[in-house]
Each structure stands twice: as C-alpha cells, then as structure tokens.
Design a protein around this nucleic acid. Structure first.
Lengths: 139, 139, 139, 139
DNA sequence: GTGGTCTAGACCACC
DNA sequence: GTGGTCTAGACCACG
C-alpha cells in the first residue's frame, strides 16, 4: 500500500489517511483480515507524528472498518457496518450531495454526471473482482 | 447558485464556500461581471456568521477572482479561463469516488446507491427551480 | 454536573469521564440539548490535560451520545443510537457479562443478583422521571 | 472458577485477572489453601500469553493474596477476610449500573435488558456445569 | 516490536 | 470564548 498526504489541501492529514485506507479497502487493494501498516513506520514514511496516524486508525476503528489489537497491530475487518439503515443512508447522502453540488458548479449536466457515476461504480467493482481473483489464485 | 457547507468535513466553511464560487466561475456557471449573492442573505441561508462569508469573499478578492465595490456588492472578474471539460470531470470524479467508497463501507449496494443519486439530483433540481421562480417573481 | 476521575483505578481517565457523562444522561441529570461543560475549564477542574477531556468527548460523539459544534460547544443528543440491533445487543451483553462474572466471584446468587438488577433499573427510571418533572415544571 | 478478560476495557488484562481472583477470595468462592488454576491452561483458555497470567499471579503474590510453591502451583493464602455482604453488593452494583447505563444509551428497554440478563446467567451456569462435569470425570 | 494513554504547548477556524 | 489539529516526547501493557 502506498499512502500519501497533501499538507496544502486544507483537509486534515488524519482524515486523508483514513479515506485512503477506506478507498484501498473498497477497491480490494486491502483484503479483510490483512494487517495495515504499523503506526510508527507509517508515521515516519508520511512525515506525520505517530499520534496523527493513530488518530486516523482510531477513526477507522470507530467506523467499524478496522480492528486494532494492542501489541499485535491493526487489521481490516470484514465489511459489516454496525450502523442502522437510516444512518447509513444519511451518511452516504452527504457524500452524494457534495458530488452533485460540485457537478452543478462545474456545469456537468445530469446525464454526464450519471455516466460518470456508473463509470466509477464499474471501476471499483472491477478492481475488487480482480483483487479477489488475484488473492484466490496466488502464484 | 446553490451553495452548501458541511460543518463536519474538517474543511473550514469559508474555504468550502470560496471553493464553490471558484468552481462555479471555472465552469462558466457564474459569468464575468455577474454579481455574487450578497453577504447577509447568503450567511443566513448557509447558517454561517456574516464574518465567515465575508472572509470567503475577501479570500476570493485577494486571489483576484472577484472584485468588491463598496456599497454595491461583489462581482466576478473577467479573465477566469474556465476549466477544460477534462479537468472538470476529474474534479467531480474525485467527489463521486468518495461517495462510492463510503457506500461500499456502509454496505449500500449499486442499486440503492443509484436510487439515492437520482433522488438527490431530483432534489437539487427542484430546489433550483423553486429559487428561480422566487427570484423571477420578487416582491 | 460534578465529574471526577480516579487516577489510581487503572481505568483511563478519558473513559471514566465518558462513562460519567453517559451515566448523567441515563439518570436524567443531563437533558437532551443541554450543553456539556466546555473542554478547557473542565480539564482544569479535573486536573487533566485539555486533550484528554477532548478525547472523552470525541469518544462520546463517535458513540452518538453527544454532538459537538466547533466554536459553540458540545451538547447532549436526543437518545437515538446509530447502531444496528445486533451490535447494540452485543455491546450491552459485554457489560452484562462483566456484572455476572463479578457477581459469581462475590458469591452473589442468581436471585440476589436479579434483585439488584431490578433495583438499579428502578433507580434509574425513577431518577429520569424526577428529572423530567423538574425540567417540565421549573421554578 | 470462571475468569474472563475484556480486551477493550482499557484495564490491563493482568489486572482484570488479579481482581477477579481477589474477588473470588474475598467472597469465599476460593477457600484458603485451595489451588488456583495453573498458568498454561488458564492462559490458553483466556487467550492470553503465559507471561500475562504469570504477571497477574506474581502481582497477587506480592500483595500477599496467594503463595506460589515452585513445581506445585499457586495456592490461596489464609487470613483473607471475606468482604461483608454489603461491600460485595456495592461492588457488583457498580457493574450492574454500567450495564444499565449502556442499555439506556443503546435504547434497549427494560424487558429486553432483563431477557439478556437471564440469558447470560443461564449461559454462565451452563458453562460452570459443563466444567464441573469435565473435572469430575477426568481422563 | 506492537498499540494506548497522557502531558504540554502551539496554531487554526469560528463566534 | 469555543472546539480541532498537529507535534513532541514520555510511560505503560503486551508479545
């Protein structure tokens, strides 16, 4: 896994990292049960403080994405969200709204937007399928 | 224009607003010379302090994106080369990816996700239609 | 509200504080919408670092117990857990197990244990009823 | 004896174990001179490292609660005045309160909570019955 | 080696 | 004034 933070983006580094881990999991680059990079080396590599990386991981744990075992490490959990249906829809709607508003400001029409959405859904599904095949049929 | 701030994104509201104005300008949704929404109503609509909106505008003025005329208001300056189609798609794709990744972790399937996307597109279109009507038939 | 931490208990101070806030909410001592003590003064009063109190509050926010608004403060949320039925049962079962094991070690039989459970359930219900009445019929 | 550690409580496992032994001694569940479970099987049962269990026992020895005889095992020392009924009830009440508060925040009603309590009491009784049978009919 | 907790102090964004 | 983030460095518990 290659993670990276952009210090000029205004987005807090710990959130950038958490989002990248989530994206890696969603694309199959990280498989359930796999260990994440340990905190100290990752902090050094990203030029972050150890506490900042720990905050990203604890955020992921609170969201039910990873599991951390003290003294052992952090591991990707099987995809099983702890949240109620209603809450899940509210959370994802917030992200959809951000994309819709952005699309509107960038003069991207409804049809073009939907085409992009389908493209990205296909892309992530394809990535996961490939990753699954790769891990199922290792060299 | 429909602007929107997310209080939990970690990104400061004044930057969110400034970015949305820049996006609108870059796409041509806001034309050179057009007036921006005035500060007080916009602050009220977005549930922000007037100072926060003013800070966004002054940030934009410092960047040469807008021009403020005391007593008149703020206007978009010329020479804002709108982004190319390709760049605009790349920007919105980043937001779409965030929503797709979130949906995956919240175990929201492709169909449910697309349904939500359509809902939100409809919702915002409806909002804009109402706003247009209201401004078209002012007191 | 009077909170206090015991530095010799082995339990991390931030968890002690979070649990006390939850207990205050469960007993009606804190009502939905009410502000919690702000971080800095509370840290001073408890002889804790500001970050430690902030960690307790952020834990509570992750659990959906409170809501924090930057620049405004932290507020008790209406009781509406974001977790799925299954997860909720798993969480409370862990706490029940701790009590059951403790009771066994202390030679407290099934009947005596159940009597205590009923007593405590009654106690909290009574406290909430009183608090509700007090807030509903203020001086 | 049934011991149990909670890896997420923030309380170090070796202290949890030591406290449970002390509680059993304080209540009379463990009698003076009786042997404690030996380290290796107990470590396996609790999913702990042998060192962790050994640390709990050495902690207990330092506190004068138990006595270790090299090659024989660990035994409860005499003169452990069992707590009074009132003290034991106070200790278990603290644990019950924690569970009741948790149930309140997770919106688990009185009936559902009591059902869970009965379930867990039955579960542990069943466990003890099985353990007794197994030890009564050893190979 | 792993992660967890706490302290101390700094700067930022918002009201 | 509020909370949020980051850094730096220390100590603990566990394997």
């Amino acid at each position: 896994m290659v993670f990276q933070v952009n210090f000029k983006s205004g987005k807090p580094p710990y959130l950038q990292l958490a989002d990248q881990v989530k994206a890696a999991a969603a694309s199959g680059a990280l498989q359930a049960g796999e260990p994440l990079p340990s905190i100290r080396p990752l902090a050094e590599q990203l030029r972050l403080n150890r506490n900042t990386v720990a905050k990203a991981y604890s955020e992921l744990e609170a969201q039910g994405v990873i599991e951390t075992v003290a003294g052992k490490g952090c591991f990707l959990k099987a995809n099983n969200t702890p949240f109620k249906q209603e809450v899940r829809e509210r959370l994802v709607t917030a992200d959809i709204d951000a994309a819709v508003v952005q699309a509107h400001h960038l003069q991207i029409g409804r049809e073009a937007f939907l085409k992009l959405v389908h493209q990205r859904l296909d892309y992530f599904e394809h990535q996961r399928a490939q990753a699954k095949q790769a891990s199922g049929v290792p060299a």
